[in-house]
Structure formats: C-alpha cells, structure tokens
Design a protein around this nucleic acid. Structure first.
Lengths: 182, 182
DNA sequence: GTCTATACGGGGATAGAC
DNA sequence: GTCTATCCCCGTATAGAC
C-alpha cells in the first residue's frame, strides 16, 4: 500500500461519507486527493474496487472493537462497553462509520455493512450470555432490543454532531442497565 | 393529478425504495410505468421534482399518523401507539417508508425525511408530557431514548422482512413501558 | 396529454507517454 | 508509479409532432 494509495482511500472515504457513493465522481476524488484520475483505476481497478477496499478496513476495525468487548470479564462490563461502542465509533472515526450506516440502504451492500458478518454474531452471542448471567428473564429478546436501540443511537450520533448532550445520553443509557436485576 | 401522473409517482416510489434515488434512471421508471420518458419531465419538471412530490406525500401521511396519536386520551395509550407506529408503517406502506429512511443519509434531503419537521416536534412534545403524567423522573430523556429506540426498530423492520418475530418484538417493547412506574 | 426523436453533458474507464 | 489525453456510454432533459 503506497502513500498515494492510502491518500486515495482516505479521500474516497471522506467523500463517500459526505456525498454518498454514487454521487461522488471519481474525478472529484482525484482532485481532492491531488492525484490523477487514472491512478485510481490503476490501483483499485474500478470504483467498486475502491469501495471494497474501504469495506475490508471496516470489517477489520469492527473485529478489533468486538474482541475488546467480549474479552471483558464482568457481564455488566460487556453490556456497558457495547453501549459505549457507538459513542466510541462516533468520536474516533465518524466519517468512516457514517459511511457504513448509509450503506445499509444500498442494495448492493446489503448485509455487508454496519454489522459485518461474523463479528456481529460473536458480539451478539456474548451479550446474550451476559444478560443470562445477570438473570434477565428473556436474554435473547434483550439483545434484540439492545441492538435496535444502539442502531438508533448510532443514527442519531451520526446525524447530529451536537456534542453536549452526548455524555448525558450515554449516562442515561447505562442507567437503564444497572447492576441488580430481578 | 391525472391517472398517468399517479402511476408515475407510484412506480418511481417503488423503484427509488428498491434501488435508490440516483441509481434509478428515469428511463426505467418510464418503462415500468408503461409511459414515455418525456412525460415524466412534462409533469414533474425534472427528477428532483418527482422526489419532491413523493416527499410531500410523506409529510401529509405522517401528519395523519401523528394526529391520531396525540388525540388519544390516556398517556400510556399515546406511548404505546407511538411504539406501534413503525410497525404500522412497516405493514401498511413498507416501500414508502423505507425510502424515507434511506433518504436520511443523502445530504440533499437531510432533515426532511423520516421525522418531517413540525409533525415530529408535535409528537415529541406530546410524548414528553405523557411521560411526565406517568411520573417518569426524566421525561425529556425518556423521549430521546424512545425516539432512538424506534429509529432502530424502524431500521430493523425495513431491512429484514422476517415476519414471525415482529409481533414478539412489539410485545416486548410494550412490556418495557408498563402502567405503573416509580 | 402523450409519444418519438434527439441533443447534451458528465462520469467511468482505457491507452500510452514519462 | 503516475500523469495526460481521450473514448464512449448512459442518463437527464428538450423539441416538436400527434
């Protein structure tokens, strides 16, 4: 991966997140990256190839996040770390994850984005087990609930960058999952 | 609004929801609707005009749903009706609302879609008041929470059409908002 | 109101020099 | 590895007949 290759990838990511995949011309990517348009195709074959390279990064990064969560010892810690995940993604790699979420709505990339394959299942299983350990009566449903909730949270975070209320929301979410539970 | 006009609108809606706005050529809309391409532009000026017409319908329909909810008497009934809303949209006008959700991620239509302007605020206020009446300690935060949750719920519903688990989820959601509350 | 034919521009992709 | 020049298709939009 040469320096210009990385530059192209980074620029494409930013522009795709901002304008969307098919409303971002390769000519613009080239211009913003300060690179010739031909170079993009030499390195990534076609526009889709550019997207695929970005998606590969996505899967890798998500794997890291999931691994960090499932290796936590306490069940409640896992749940809280999962809640924190969207906030973490938001603060650290906003553009990157925003792109992932928008892709959910594009036919081609159905299922690839947002909760890439195996990692999502891994996390989902770990959280189910955590709920069970905490004596929730319906662990499976709780997971579905939490996933939907965090999906909505992610959407909110990605859409409106108003910083002050974020911490508040995070605390409120965590307060919904206290230590004791019938 | 002539018959062909409606036909074009309906076809465009279906195709936009399926393939996305800018990956649906006007030629395909014309073909599917059994209409000449020129007619589309005569009636709706340009492709955007087509979208605008669809969006206008969106606002109108959402207004109806919101009105039905806020005029309910009991606070808990309002909350449960709000929870039911995504399920209702899903079952009644799936393609239509799926399009709305996908638009959230397209710069041009930011803020217009999913929770169209005044209606969203109206509902939001009504639900805040409902939570207050039910003695929730932080009504405002509860509303934000509920909105995020339902946003996630909507996403799930629009993405995966597996019917059996839907009723289950709906009941589970409602069970999270029981009649008694400290 | 509706159709057919056509103009126009832009975007993806390739060829070939350096 | 990188750039310049160029091709060509396809999608939006218009003109004009019926």
């Amino acid at each position: 991966m040469t320096e210009k290759q990385e530059l192209i990838l980074e620029t494409a990511l930013k522009l795709f997140a901002e304008h969307g995949f098919d409303t971002t011309p390769t000519s613009l990517i080239a211009k913003e990256a300060g690179v010739s348009e031909g170079l993009i195709f030499r390195h990534f074959t076609n526009k889709e190839g550019l997207m695929d390279a970005i998606l590969a990064m996505s899967d890798e990064r998500m794997g890291g996040h999931v691994k960090a969560i499932v290796t936590l010892a306490e069940p409640l810690a896992k749940i809280h770390a999962t809640i924190e995940l969207p906030f973490k993604l938001f603060s650290e790699e906003r553009e990157f994850w925003k792109l992932q979420f928008s892709l959910k709505w594009q036919k081609k990339y159905k299922g690839q984005s947002a909760h890439p394959g195996g990692h999502y299942l891994e996390l989902s299983n770990a959280i189910t087990e955590s709920f069970r350990q905490l004596n929730y009566t319906e662990p499976e449903k709780e997971v579905v609930f939490l996933v939907m909730l965090l999906d909505g949270v992610s959407n909110q975070l990605m859409q409106q960058p108003s910083d002050e209320f974020i911490q508040e929301i995070l605390l409120f979410l965590k307060s919904k999952y206290p230590n004791s539970k019938a």
